[in-house]
Amino acid sequence: MDDVEITDVEDDNSPYRVEKAPLNNQDLSSLSLTVGELLSQYGWYLLAVTVLVYLLIQHLSKRRSSQSSSSSPQQTLQDAALVAKRQEAMEAARIKMQEELDAKADIFREKQRQQEEEKRRQKIEVWDSMQQGRSYKGTAKPSQTTEEASSSTTVKPKSDKKPLRSADYNPLTGQGGSSVSWRPGRRGPSSGG
């Protein structure tokens, strides 16, 4: 083994003198190193979580304050009165609309009854005229008298018929009577792909 020389460190004359730094709180320095390391690795995540927690607290405090203010007895009574007024107005509007609908339905029923009465009267007139041996047109108006009916059945002389087209009309050539002309399509192969 080698010879090892041991010297006293506290000896002022020794060549191997170690200067001691003033003692600091070593617990806080290790803590600051740990915190610095965490912030360097997870800093952005910690910032985002902090902002979200802050916003959540703000939202919950606003919600709590609005609930406490809305639950005040005077405002609750005003809200109840407002709701009651709205319901009364809606009920009045419903009643008014129902009355209008009932009036329209009565008018419609009256028109239907009049139409049925008119049809029944026309059927009776047709039946009576058939019993008397007269011919009755269903399209003739009931107010028409027999004299008017006899005058409307007179034969009118027919006028001379003119030919509809001239003799030189040919629809295939496009010459003649009308302004519309037909022309045959191009001959040849189609120009498809």
Rank of each mutant, 00 (worst) to 15 (best):
A140Q: 10
V35L: 13
S65N: 12
P73G: 08
G185R: 04
Y45D: 14
G174P: 00
E37M: 13
T50C: 11
Q41D: 12
L31Q: 13
S61P: 01
E99I: 12
S152F: 07
G43L: 08
A149F: 01
T154M: 12
S143G: 07
K123S: 04
R183H: 05
Y54L: 09
I6E: 02
K119C: 06
G133D: 02
A103E: 11
S40C: 08
S69N: 09
G177T: 13
S143W: 03
Q144I: 07
S179A: 07
Q78A: 13
M97Q: 14
I95H: 05
A21D: 10
A84E: 06
I95F: 13
Q98P: 09
A48W: 07
S29W: 14
E91H: 12
G185F: 00
P163Q: 13
P15C: 01
A105H: 01
A48Q: 11
Q87W: 03
S14E: 06
P73T: 05
Y16V: 02
R63S: 13
S68D: 00
L164R: 04
M130F: 06
L46E: 11
K104C: 09
H59K: 03
T145C: 07
N170D: 13
S14I: 04
P184M: 06
S179D: 08
T173L: 13
Q122M: 05
D102K: 13
Q115F: 02
Q78V: 02
Q98M: 11
S61T: 07
S190H: 11
Q67K: 11
P189A: 14
Q67V: 02
V83E: 10
E125D: 13
G133Q: 04
E10F: 12
D79W: 04
S152L: 06
R113G: 05
S71P: 02
D2P: 15
G188D: 02
S66E: 02
P163D: 15
R17E: 04
E91V: 08
Q41Y: 13
E5D: 04
R86L: 05
M97W: 14
S181E: 04
L23Y: 05
T146S: 15
P157F: 10
T154L: 15
G43S: 08
A89I: 01
K123I: 03
D27H: 08
K162A: 06
